[in-house]
């Protein structure tokens, strides 16, 4: 494992981690599909193509440095999302309409 160490001293197969997002078809949102290690963005894109899109799984790929992703904390799921809990009036079912009228 001593070969190929980059100048910054990181181990040879442990280049920066990139998260891969794939757009399955035009018009669809990008979805997270996994990650790759790569020296730079260009190589990350090529690796992502070879690892996650060998069968035309997508029309477009994004790679994002994993360190750039900020996530909410699973432990805080209750308090974090609770502002939405008591707002039934944000849903159409909350509203009564005269019987027999087709609203949509």
């Amino acid at each position: 494992m001593s070969q190929g160490k980059p100048p910054d001293g990181t181990p040879d197969s442990q280049w920066p981690l990139w998260e891969v997002f794939i757009q399955p078809q035009y018009g669809a949102p990008h979805e997270h599909c996994g990650s790759v290690h790569a020296v730079d963005a260009e190589q990350a894109l090529l690796n992502a193509r070879d690892v996650y899109a060998r069968r035309n799984e997508g029309m477009n790929l994004w790679v994002v440095p994993s360190s750039a992703i900020v996530g909410s904390t699973p432990e805080d799921v209750g308090p974090f999302f609770d502002p939405a809990n008591d707002k039934a009036y944000r849903h159409p079912q909350f509203y009564k309409v005269p019987r027999g009228v087709k609203v949509f």
């Binding site: 070969q3 190929g4 980059p6 280049w15 020296v39 260009e42 190589q43």
Partner: peptide, 19 residues
């Protein structure tokens, strides 16, 4: 793994040059 070392080294050198 050992014979792939030069490929990894080349990728790093290329990335450093680009930077």
């Amino acid at each position: 793994h050992e014979e792939g070392a030069w490929v990894r080294a080349a990728a790093e050198a290329h990335a450093a040059k680009q930077r």
